[in-house]
């Protein structure tokens, strides 16, 4: 047969220019950076002691002294929101780092070893899937007493299966690539292949997944604190503030709940948008 395609795919591929993160993506990064900076500098930025109760100053509107007003106990809202950034951001950060580290290790080891190890790991993950994050957090809190530590531990356990499942299937795909066989034949050791090649190639996916997980963790931790089972009052925390401000709403003072809610939505939205951008880019690079 006559083959007319003389050089297959000789046509110049229209260079797929990486559009980058785009203005929206960079805005999200800016928002996250700003919030992180606030969390670090909070004690110096806060104009008042966030826990200073002054019942005479309860539910004040915004004024020169209290820029965002005060809560039902007369505490300065701006200071509480600034300081609250700390526990509100550190909690999700811990969840993401621990759950990703553990989930990643489990996934790559079980994908690499295969066989019964993989079967057992998959089975355990299946059972962990049976516990929705918030429910597991409630159970763990019931056992270990309310607090940020217990809630973080619970969410780490609840998130491991989601991270492990995604990474495991990606690692299996990567493992079946011919270059892995080539490395094995050259006598490269399993740990080196796993870390220097498989893990390195999965990095964009992991970064994208972690960014999205941060958003979920933030929502779940704030929800646990909102239930009164996470961060304990009087510590300033956005989730707690949404809850403690709730009675004041009915009295016509919604500011504490609304400001805290707005900050949660802002942070979660920024992480979601950035996570979506990272996901798009990681998919584009693997295609």
């Amino acid at each position: 047969m006559t083959t007319l395609t003389l050089r297959r795919r000789a046509l110049p591929r229209v260079a797929r220019t990486d559009p980058g993160l785009g203005p929206v993506g960079w805005t999200a990064i800016g928002v996250i950076a700003l919030l992180a900076l606030i969390a670090v500098l909070a004690p110096w930025l806060a104009p008042h002691d966030p826990n200073n109760i002054s019942l005479l100053d309860a539910n004040l509107g915004s004024s020169g002294d209290h820029l965002l007003g005060t809560d039902a106990s007369g505490r300065d809202l701006l200071s509480r929101l600034l300081v609250g950034a700390r526990s509100s951001l550190i909690g999700p950060l811990l969840v993401v780092v621990l759950a990703t580290a553990l989930g990643l290790t489990v996934a790559i080891v079980s994908a690499w070893l295969g066989g019964w190890v993989d079967a057992v790991v998959s089975r355990i993950l299946d059972i962990l899937f049976a516990f929705p994050g918030v429910l597991l957090a409630v159970l763990v809190v019931a056992v270990f007493r309310a607090g940020l530590g217990a809630a973080v531990a619970a969410l780490v356990i609840a998130y491991i299966p989601y991270i492990a499942r995604t990474v495991r299937s990606a690692a299996l795909r990567e493992k079946s690539q011919p270059y892995i066989t080539a490395l094995t034949i050259q006598g490269v050791g399993a740990p080196a292949i796993c870390v220097r090649h498989i893990l390195a190639n999965l990095m964009p996916l992991i970064v994208a997944q972690s960014t999205l997980t941060f958003g979920y963790a933030m929502v779940d931790l704030a929800a646990v604190s909102f239930l009164g089972l996470g961060v304990q009052p009087p510590t300033a925390d956005w989730g707690v503030m949404v809850s403690t401000g709730q009675p004041s709403i009915l009295n016509g003072y919604p500011q504490e709940s609304l400001y805290a809610s707005a900050l949660i939505v802002l942070a979660v939205g920024a992480f979601n948008i950035l996570g979506d951008r990272f996901t798009e880019r990681s998919q584009r690079s693997t295609r």
């Binding site: 047969m1 006559t2 083959t3 007319l4 003389l6 050089r7 000789a10 046509l11």
Partner: peptide, 24 residues
Amino acid sequence: LLASRPSLTVRARRLPVIGGRPLA
């Protein structure tokens, strides 16, 4: 094009190709 197809009778060491690449 006609020249670049394999012949049934003549054994060629290498099939003739059209130099360059096709244009869109």
